[in-house]
Design a protein around this nucleic acid. Structure first.
Lengths: 147, 147
DNA sequence: TACCGTGCGTCCAGAATCCGAACTCACCCC
DNA sequence: GGGGTGAGTTCGGATTCTGGACGCACGGTA
């Protein structure tokens, strides 16, 4: 008999369900960069208009973006980040950082972020409790209160 | 005349090209959790065997995983993280954290990580230069040395 | 009034992917 | 020989993605 499938119940999986479709995070990136209108997003992400329409809908439904009317006639909408959407910033940042480190061409990373401190933004994940940089080797998992 | 498409050259986009396909990050998650064999991954991710085969190949080609033989006859392989793969830990962590915060049911987050410091791991992105927690409102972008 | 441009989509048909179930192949153990 | 396991491959059908063309409501301008 073959072992039964036991897909993990997992926040990573759940998050990817919402945000893991192609173009979804690029749409969010554009909003972070201040491009809130449909055509601009199409232009700067390269996504097919159709697909972007679908993605934006998913993101709005998931409570990551908010559709705001900025013109009545004709009806025109902008996409704004909700609080949940803003919380995706660390995800975007860590993706950016990984790409900068592992996929940058010889001309260096294409999009450079500056932190308010004046330096180039170098993002790292730290443990909120002790403040130390997180090393996978130093984490263990615990079963949740298995109710 | 319609404005020309100008997809951003962007590390986020590049990273997603490699790691943004469905199941890719879940496969990486499994390796982080210590499940290095094909059948285990199929079981715990829920991905179709077919798709997982393709994903693993992509990840190996991208230098994120490494295929190591652990038995000669029959030939059997395990997937291990490379240095680049280990660098994906922050991405996984921030996804996990977002899901914990925004998609957890009433029974709390399903998979709890503990940091070596003894506390529940609470990952946050900080600026490496000044040590402060990164707030999107406090970052600006600079064009790279436009060579 | 007629025409042009723009913003924001929708429609369509074909291509690419994904899916689950069944199959293969090479072993090992009894 | 019979059963079990690990690691895929094969298959046809279901979804999803894609790009290009089209629709519609305007606003400007002539």
């Amino acid at each position: 008999m073959t072992a039964p499938a036991e897909p993990r119940i997992c926040s990573i999986a759940r998050t990817l369900e919402v945000v893991g479709e192609k173009w979804a995070l690029l749409a969010v990136r554009e909003v972070f960069l201040g491009n809130r209108r449909f055509d601009e997003m199409v232009r700067r992400t390269g996504a097919p208009r159709d697909t972007l329409t679908a993605r934006l809908r998913t993101l709005v439904d998931a409570g990551i973006l908010q559709r705001q009317r900025y013109s009545d006639r004709p009806q025109r909408f902008e996409y704004h980040l909700t609080a949940a959407g803003r919380d995706l910033y660390p995800v975007i940042l860590t993706l950016l950082r990984w790409g900068d480190e592992h996929l940058a061409g010889p001309e260096g990373p294409p999009l450079v972020l500056e932190h308010a401190c004046g330096h180039r933004l170098l993002a790292e994940v730290t443990c909120q409790a002790c403040g130390e940089v997180v090393d996978p080797a130093e984490t263990t998992r615990r079963s949740p209160t298995s109710s």
